[in-house]
């Protein structure tokens, strides 16, 4: 009953077949799921995609078991500080990264299996008042943290044994960094958004802050998800978690904005809007597909380049969706409920 009015209000309508149910798992003792994700895991010469579920005090790793079943392999118990987020680490294997904290992130930990000791373990990578964190290709993690006096932006090179091999300080902007996004095809470039609604660009090799570009006063506070460099322009996918209905089509869930890094000028490219009514929550982006949970409890998926909704996953009789995350490598969409149910869909 939620999908129908959404479908009717969208210009070209979501294609029902674009999300195909694959499998479901349920964490039986979890009553407050906080995040879900998927990681590549290699064991006994076989590399497979495993699901990770996070509750406040525990993170579980799930292995696929035919047909369409999942078995819990291990649970890491983290009882001192609540888990608040799983941090995706692209292109890594046998490694889960989690952020822990109360209102904001206080710790970042790696969860892994150690073949030396034949046991699962976790290790601390970073502490502080952490405002934003992102995992990048080549086993790198960037975070921004703030003390009363200053902001620190740091890149950590992770090791396969769960430690840090090296650290690189990046030049901080004056405003607090609220989100980071990797730049597709440019491993040395990093994009971020600030509390002052600017997009900033770093050179990760030198740590230089290359450019600060204002997003525009007409946009609500923006969060960067992903960026692509093409033909001398930087295309940044932004979402507006506290967005209001500011456009004729409704509330914008995602926007693609083109920036000219040479001049700092910008121009809107596409807007992926919800029809009037349901507000969006913070979403997730994979390649050119965006997904977000709506306040109605449905999950909506957009083609960000065309600016159109391609699929809607309505809340079922079992309850509302609370989490939507893309699995790595185009493996599909993970939708989770607070009761610990996770469903995997092929997209």
């Amino acid at each position: 009953d939620v999908a129908e009015p959404l479908t009717a209000a969208l210009p070209d309508g979501p294609r029902e077949e674009s999300l195909q149910f694959v499998s479901e798992l349920k964490e039986p003792w979890c009553s407050g799921a906080v995040d879900v994700g998927a990681v590549w895991w290699a064991a006994a010469g076989c590399r497979e995609l495993r699901v990770v579920t996070a509750c406040e005090s525990a993170v579980s790793l799930w292995q696929p078991r035919a047909p369409a079943c999942w078995a819990r392999v291990h649970t890491w118990h983290l009882r001192e500080i609540p888990v608040i987020q799983i941090v995706p680490l692209p292109d890594t294997c046998n490694l889960v990264c989690v952020a822990l904290g109360e209102l904001e992130i206080g710790e970042i930990r790696l969860l892994l299996y150690s073949s030396d000791t034949d046991s699962f373990k976790h290790s601390l990578v970073k502490t502080g008042n952490i405002k934003a964190v992102v995992g990048l290709k080549d086993w790198r993690l960037v975070s921004s943290s703030r003390t009363m006096q200053e902001q620190q932006v740091e890149m950590v090179f992770l090791s396969e044994t769960g430690g840090s091999k090296d650290r690189q300080t990046l030049m901080p902007p004056e405003e607090t960094v609220t989100a980071f996004a990797e730049v597709e095809g440019m491993s040395e470039a990093l994009v971020g958004t600030t509390a002052g609604n600017s997009v900033v660009v770093w050179n990760l090799r030198t740590g230089q802050l290359l450019r600060k570009m204002h997003v525009g006063y007409s946009y609500p506070v923006s969060i960067s998800h992903r960026a692509y460099s093409d033909s001398g322009l930087l295309f940044v996918v932004l979402s507006h978690p506290h967005g209001k209905e500011s456009e004729p089509c409704g509330s914008p869930a995602f926007r693609v904005v083109a920036f000219n890094p040479r001049t700092g000028r910008s121009a809107p490219v596409t807007s992926s809007c919800l029809p009037p009514g349901p507000a969006g929550r913070r979403g997730d982006v994979w390649d050119t597909a965006g997904a977000a949970v709506l306040t109605s409890g449905a999950v909506a998926v957009w083609d960000l380049l065309r600016g159109c909704c391609t699929a809607v996953l309505p809340p079922g009789p079992a309850g509302q969706w609370a989490l939507a995350r893309w699995a790595p490598g185009g493996a599909g969409l993970l939708a989770g409920r607070r009761d610990g149910t996770v469903q995997l869909y092929r997209y």
Binding site: N203, L209, L233, N260, P261, R262, T263, A267
Partner: peptide, 23 residues
């Protein structure tokens, strides 16, 4: 969007800004 909206475009913006920005 056109070049007139965004100003002159450079394909080597990353290298150019890295040369110009403070170290």
């Amino acid at each position: 969007c056109s070049e007139s909206d965004l100003g002159p475009i450079s394909l080597n913006w990353f290298e150019e800004l890295s040369t110009e920005a403070p170290p």
